[in-house]
Amino acid sequence: MSVILNVENWSYTKVNQYLREKILEGETEFELHGVNGHRYLFAGIKQKIKAKILGVPGLDLGCFMSGPEIYVYGNVQDACGNTMEEGKIVVYGMAGDVIGYSMRGGKIFIKGDVGYRVGIHMKAYQDKHPVIIIGGKTGDFLGEYMAGGTIIVLGLLSQHPEKPITGKFLGTGMHGGVIYIRGELDPFFLGKNLKISPINEEDLTYLKTILTEYCADMDENLESIINDRFSKITPVSHRPYGNLYAY
């Protein structure tokens, strides 16, 4: 049985306090109704709980969290998954800027478009490998300073059919990890010191596994996506600023 809660008239602090109490009592499933700009929901939660959010959560959904699975039936605001370590956030809508800032592990799946600087400074560590999959299109500076993990942009469903699939300065300062873009990517959009290559067998196997999960969550057809061409973007060097200094 999940805990069903209408938080329409609650402050975010009260919601988080209540959730923490219930989690400590051993509750593992939650359904939040009337979410309307509530910030920091599930901040720093470590337990492997499941939650449904109906409405639009505010800033920093799931920041510093390390475990929960959150399904959002609506859009999310900026910095969702900020410095998250483990868990999963699935958004059946669009997302704002700096999604997954510095995330070290876990998954963020977005059905629609995302804003600027998504996946900035993502990093992988030991068995942790963060993944962001964007069903729509992205703003500028996707994967800026990226140090590890995977970002996949599908461009399936967008508010902006006229725009290119990603914004400019993609992967600026990137020194680790991989970005996959469905279709061709004009190098004009790329930051410095990056290379575009076609995907190989290993990439395809990985894409198949992770996109199977995405398609199951989003009710998309895997066949029609996986058979498309993908461009793979990786840094030329893991030390992009190695020669910056005169000693």
Binding site: D60, D78, A79, N82, V98, Y101, R104, R117, I120, H121, K123, A124, Y125, E144, Y145, A147, G148, G173, H175, G176, H238, R239, P240, Y241, G242
Partner: peptide
Amino acid sequence: RMIPLGTDALSPAPHHD
């Protein structure tokens, strides 16, 4: 630091949030 061995640890100038 929770980063792989031997990678540069870059702190961006601003917090981008």
